[in-house]
Design a protein around this nucleic acid. Structure first.
Length: 600
RNA sequence: GCACCCGUAGCUCAAUGGAUAGAGCGCCUGACUUCGAAUCAGUAGGUUGGGGGUUCGAGUCCCUCCGGGUGCGCCA
């Protein structure tokens, strides 16, 4: 936010170094000054001093860094807009003139509004692929982690200036899907629950039942074994007929698939996700077969079918690697059918050529990291420049306190159930804490707060860490939670409502309290947090920031009187600060796909 | 066997190679006739799994060991 000042100070430093025969600092890093209670920016001279030492000068690096910092401080003086410049232990600290910078920060937020913090147009198109649940199943809390992580990421890169496409890739075919169709056709034909969420759960129930019938048991009798094998043969035959395009099965498949998709669309609507492009696994099968010949012709893939094998890619060998790293993988089974990898390659080709994607992010379970490393390398061998800008955003899996989720054992936290419970708990909280809230508003608010708690529980943990989903902790409304941040927004709204309006301008020409400075500093950091989170593909960075911003606001709120400020000028300045805080909190929450309610 | 991830306060988790490792929960203490207490202020709690190394500087990078998890050509 203070790039101009930084640049001019950097120029001063470069001049000073040049004049005193000190190696030019290559990359000056500016950070906030820690634990000072004041507000400013800081850089250090350790690297410069170390460079001198390497060039043969006999110096103690930390002492020399301090000397340079002192010299630079003296050379710079106190620039316009700053109140103090000091050299401490090798660091050069520049303290802002608080009134000038405060006004500038607040004005920037008020002018930018919902666009405050938005990055420059990057001139690049990014596709974020997430929300890839299998159909013929119900959406559980693990799918939710995927969806919310992908959505937050999409919002971040979009806000940072990338042309962004949201893509979903449901697994709508495969042995699991056929298993459900088999059970339906054999035992439940013609049945169909009314409610769309019941249908998803019902299909899951069919899957569990069918899997039990089809899985070998240790104590099974010869008759049971024969029965099971007969069932399995039916299922395999069904898969073959589906593949051959059997009209009855295709119709049944599309119909039941639609039940799942209806539920999926309903859930995505609930959590405010708008997918731009739907890729179905079943639709990339034919294109996938087509690319195999091309890859053989290009010498990327080896055809071992003549020897009874498959079509494979020996990735390490093609890259000329001695050590095994990417290994080899199969593109086409010897029966001529495609695999997951083949389909992902075909899909990537489509993303690059048909959608003009420059960079591609895959939000997929971390267990598939080898698969994506292989896919990206094959794309590179294939000649796609964009392959180097493909990124697999892996995330740890979500389990329950009882252990891994398992549909078969009935151990699943279905997303819809969790949301319903969240809303119930928020309604109870509202009844206790805000009984004046009109009844008709309660349901909306409960949904926003309940979903906010869930989203934050997922996003406030680093993506490469596993999560044990404890519903009581995820639906906590106090402390390091979504509702805590939402509550800061609500409190700001409340002040502004009572104030009756926001002054069009204000100066900060009075002695600012530490709480005001802290809040203004947090607000000023928002644009750089957007950049970092987007650059690193890490929604966690924004999640942590949002909490810290809310903490700064809550502290401020408690200590600094706004409506009853001592003077009219202070009241105006503080009202604008509250408005800027509200805006920044709202922007941060939006990037996390969390609603910013005005009351709760 | 090979590769990747994780190990930080009692618990759950943060910390672009940078100054004194921070939060939340829980424990204990205090603050509502006050802009909304889903809040705030404070106390206590650490050999960052062990050991080497690189660096002016390591929770962070390298090596090694220990412990936990995941993956590894015809599943997705």
């Amino acid at each position: 936010m203070f790039e101009d000042e930084q640049r001019s100070i950097e120029a001063f430093i470069q001049t000073y170094c040049a004049e005193n025969d000190i190696p030019a600092p290559e990359d000056l890093q500016w950070k906030p000054i820690p634990f000072s209670g004041d507000w400013g920016i800081s850089t250090s001279f350790f690297q410069v001093a170390a460079q001198e030492a390497r060039l043969g000068k006999k110096v103690n690096v930390s002492i020399r860094a301090q000397e340079i910092a002192e010299g630079a401080a003296a050379h710079i003086g106190v620039p316009e807009g700053f109140s103090l410049v000091e050299a401490v232990r090798g660091y050069l600290n520049l303290y802002f003139s608080s009134s000038e910078f405060s006004r500038r920060v607040i004005d920037a937020v008020m002018k930018g509004g919902a666009n405050f913090g938005r990055g420059e147009d990057k001139g690049e198109r990014v596709m974020v692929e997430y929300a890839q649940p299998n159909t013929h199943h119900s959406f559980h809390i693990g799918h939710y982690r995927n969806a919310i992580l992908g959505e937050a990421l999409a919002r971040l890169v979009e806000f940072d200036g990338f042309d962004t496409i949201r893509a979903s890739y449901p697994g709508d075919i495969g042995l699991g899907v056929i298993t459900v169709l088999w059970a339906y056709d054999k035992f439940y034909k013609g049945q169909e629950p009314d409610d769309l969420h019941e249908r998803g759960q019902w299909l899951l129930k069919l899957y569990v039942e069918a899997t039990n019938l089809l899985t070998p048991r240790e104590d099974e009798t010869p008759a049971e074994k024969a029965q099971r094998e007969a069932y399995d043969a039916e299922r395999r035959e069904m898969y073959r007929k589906w593949d051959a395009g059997d009209p009855y099965l295709r119709q049944l498949w599309l119909e039941t698939r639609e039940w799942s998709l209806e539920e999926l669309r309903d859930i995505l609507r609930l959590i405010d996700i708008n997918i731009d492009v739907w890729f179905f696994e079943s639709e990339v099968d034919e294109p996938a077969k087509a690319i195999v010949e091309e890859l053989i012709a290009r010498g990327v893939a080896d055809d071992e079918r003549p020897r009874g094998g498959a079509v494979i890619v020996k990735i390490d060998q093609k890259l000329g690697l001695e050590k095994e790293q990417y290994r080899a993988n199969v593109l086409l089974r010897n029966d001529g059918t495609t695999l997951y990898l083949t389909k992902d390659l075909a899909l990537a080709k489509d993303k690059f050529e048909k959608y003009g994607v420059d960079r591609s992010v895959y939000v997929v379970d971390v267990r598939q990291s080898l698969h994506f490393q292989q896919a990206f390398k094959i794309l590179e061998l294939w000649g796609f420049e964009q392959a180097r800008k493909c990124h697999h955003l892996g995330y740890g899996f979500v389990s329950l306190p009882e252990g891994a989720m398992s549909a078969r054992r009935g151990q699943v936290a279905l997303f819809k159930d969790v949301v319903d419970e969240a809303i119930r708990r928020v309604l109870a909280e509202i009844a206790r804490k805000n009984p004046d809230l009109p009844q008709q508003a309660r349901q909306d608010v409960a949904k926003q707060v309940g979903l906010g708690a869930l989203a934050y529980a997922m996003l406030s943990v680093d993506n490469n860490r596993d999560i044990v989903f404890d519903i009581d902790k995820a639906l906590s409304f106090e402390g390091h939670t979504g509702p805590y941040i939402q509550n800061a927004h609500v409190r700001a709204c409340s002040i502004l409502r009572k104030a009756g309006g926001i002054p069009g301008e204000a100066t900060f020409n009075y002695k600012l309290t530490p709480h005001e400075l802290g809040l203004i500093e947090m607000i000023s950091r928002f644009p750089s947090v957007v950049q970092q989170a987007a650059r690193e593909y890490r929604p966690l960075v924004m999640a942590s920031y949002a909490f810290e911003l809310a903490t700064a606001f809550h502290s401020y709120y408690h200590v600094v009187p706004v409506l009853k400020a001592e003077t009219e000028a202070m009241r105006a300045a503080r009202l604008r600060l509250v408005a800027a805080a509200r805006q920044t909190i709202a922007n941060a929450l939006h990037l996390l796909a969390i609603a910013a309610p005005e009351v709760m």
